[in-house]
Design a protein around this nucleic acid. Structure first.
Lengths: 75, 75
DNA sequence: ACATAATGCAATATATCCTTTACATTTTGA
DNA sequence: TCAAAATGTAAAGGATATATTGCATTATGT
């Protein structure tokens, strides 16, 4: 599955979800869903996020072996 | 808009669209559409493509100022 | 020339991204 | 404590990524 450290990097620069969202041209809800791992953004958005967070796409997003959890609804 | 050099890198390793598609788990049609610039893949797929092409996401995909052309249909 | 592989392209269907709107909860700061 | 900001979350809908199937065209090798 796809993992990321958007939240960690965003905290490092003391940006709110809304501020980061404005920087890259999306809504704060989308930022929240990406941080939660619910959305795998397009590479265009990933490039913008990496730039806003002053690092590379690979530093922000990476693939792991882990399987996708359940359906999101807790048991 | 989003540009990429998938075709150039694929040629460098003498891979067919079908071979690259198999390496990253998609269909050859999708490879063709990405090369043509019609699709901006998910960051998960971009990571797999960059890995298959032995480089970074930023080397394969980048954003430019250029506007999206017409609707694809020639005038 | 011929067979085969590679590519282009189109239509349809499904999955997923992303937005908008709305409301609840949590955190922060004076 | 109180107000404001930040975050969580959800539903509905538009936009687009990706698969599947099928057929036409072009390139490659013998």
């Amino acid at each position: 599955m796809l993992e990321n450290k958007v939240r960690e990097l965003r905290a490092r620069y003391k940006l709110s979800q809304t501020e980061l969202a404005n920087l890259v041209g999306i809504t704060r809800q989308t930022v929240g869903l990406i941080e939660k791992g619910d959305y795998a953004p397009s590479v265009a958005l990933a490039l913008k996020l990496a730039k806003a967070l002053q690092t590379s796409v690979e530093e922000v997003f990476w693939l792991t072996d882990k399987q996708e959890g359940g359906n999101g609804k807790h048991a």
